[in-house]
Design a protein around this nucleic acid. Structure first.
Length: 430
RNA sequence: GGAGGGGUGACCGAGCGGCCGAAGGUGCGGCACUGGAAAUGCCGUGCGCGGGGCGAACCCCUGUGCCGUGGGUUCAAAUCCCACCCCCUCCGCCA
């Protein structure tokens, strides 16, 4: 969330910055509530000061053996008024927090203006889409023809938008995850972390998944306890919540964490969209990248994170482009972000395979991660960054489509061979 | 699942209902000592919120709150009561 002080001090600047993103209309109401809050706090604290002084005097009087019952009765009343004021403060606090939670992050000045993804800006391209001597097929056809991708049985045992991958394709999925983790931990300075896939509602709130995206989450209930846990829609949730409530030493920043986990998403409201194959499923694997950085490091770390994700595609020799998201498309929590879009010959389009964002202090404030400056001084909120490095399911798609052969087989990208000993092509399942 | 113990500042660890934001230690910062360092000595070292000092930053003053979380008792709660969360030990069960 935004710093209320920023809204207080520069309401017009904030409203202007949110022009493309929305939320500017909330500013006025927040200011009104904030003024009310401060008035109430002042009143309550004045009374508390009065009570503290009186209590002191009562204590002394009683130790002298004097009667202080009149003063005690007076303070009892003051106590009741304090209680009432505190309750009002609490109500207003909750209202402000609810309002503040609806205000999106202010885009970084460098972010291009625009309303939708149509206004996103292509930053660079890498690789040349291969020339096919035949009509390249979409991944679901390639996979199903080989008998390795099995959407029907997945639907049978679960429902639509789930997948079953047999044999070598399952191996490919696993190998890709392994390959990405090794790359990021060995070459990019990330620490591999194994995290819970089910987290509390509190964690979902602190990572901005709730309440806004509740309809996208799978929720579990322990039947006999009635307790709720949520399936993570991305490992970003678990990774970025790890240090919630902590104050980190500046010299330990930036911290770079990566995790390979399944991700669970309801995909509500996407009926009919990307229904074929595994492009948009309820369950998919992803290698997630999360960084905690100082404000001074934040944007530099965003650029390097994008390059780190790109490296995966380069090693796999998959053509892609980098797109910077415009102000209207950058995402609720993000101050700046890039998408990596991989070339899918079966679709004849570049499609998103990674999204890297800097949530800046907006994220750090919400999860409450701060750092203590090296030379002393007040703790300040960390920048939190996250990105996919990469979405494994979509990488499988990219491999199936870009490496497909005329005979229906699929060549294994050379960089992946060490992870798939004895396998250089996907062939029909026996 | 049964029985018991415990959650205090960056960390360890004291703490009679008022004089406790909290002893002591460690760590950290500064200074002294040193050719430089170690050791030693001295000093300093929490966070949030509100009000004010030039409505900026840094800083200062002042008030208030914070001893797992939330309630309660009381003129007054780290200290008493209740609920919840978490951790630990022993027994049972178990991948």
């Amino acid at each position: 969330m935004l710093d209320i002080k920023l809204i207080r001090d520069q309401p017009d600047a904030v409203a202007t910055a949110l022009a493309d993103k929305g939320g500017a209309e909330l500013i006025h109401e927040i200011l009104a509530r904030d003024a009310e809050r401060r008035r109430l706090i002042k009143d309550a604290e004045d009374l508390k000061a009065l009570r503290n002084r009186a209590s002191e005097a009562i204590g002394q009087a009683r130790r002298r053996g004097e009667d202080a019952s009149a003063e005690q009765a007076r303070m009892r009343e003051v106590g009741d008024r304090i209680k009432a004021l505190d309750a009002e403060v609490k109500t207003v606090d909750a209202a402000i927090e609810a309002l503040l939670a609806q205000v999106p992050n202010v885009p970084h000045p460098s972010v291009p203006r625009g309303k939708s993804d149509a206004d996103n800006v292509e930053v660079r391209r890498w690789g040349t889409p291969r020339d096919f001597a035949f009509a390249p097929r979409p991944h679901e056809e390639v996979g199903e023809a080989l008998g390795l991708l099995d959407m029907d049985r997945a639907a049978k045992i679960a429902r639509a938008r789930f997948a079953v991958m047999w044999g070598a394709l399952s191996r490919l999925e696993r190998a890709l995850g392994q390959f990405m983790l090794d790359l990021h931990t060995r070459e990019h300075g990330y620490t591999e972390v194994w995290v819970p896939h089910l987290v509390s509602g509190e964690t979902m709130l602190r990572t901005g998944q709730l309440p806004k995206f509740e309809e996208q989450l799978f929720k579990t209930v322990e039947a006999d306890e009635g307790r709720t846990l949520y399936l993570i829609p991305t490992a970003e949730v678990s990774l970025s919540a790890l240090h919630g409530g902590e104050v980190l030493a500046e010299r330990t920043l930036p911290r770079r964490y990566t995790a390979f986990t399944p991700c669970y998403r309801r995909e509500a409201g996407t009926y009919g969209k990307d229904m074929k194959g595994i492009f948009r499923n309820h369950q998919f694997d992803k290698v997630e990248l999360v960084k905690l950085a100082t404000p001074a490091q934040g944007y530099e770390e965003l650029e390097s994170m994008v390059r780190e994700a790109e490296t995966v595609l380069q090693r796999l020799e998959l053509p892609y482009r980098v797109v910077e998201r415009c102000a209207g498309d950058v995402g609720f929590s993000a101050a700046k972000g890039y998408d990596l879009e991989v070339w899918l010959p079966g679709q004849g389009k570049y499609r998103e395979i990674s999204s890297c964002s800097n949530y800046a202090d907006f994220g750090g404030r919400r999860v409450d991660i701060r750092f203590k400056p090296e030379g002393g001084g007040k703790p300040d909120f960390c920048h939190t960054l996250n990105g996919s490095g990469l979405a494994v399911g979509r990488t499988v798609i990219a491999v199936l489509e870009n490496y497909q052969n005329a005979d229906g087989t699929v060549t294994i990208p050379p960089a992946l061979r060490p992870y798939l000993p004895g396998l250089d092509r996907l062939t029909p399942r026996a």
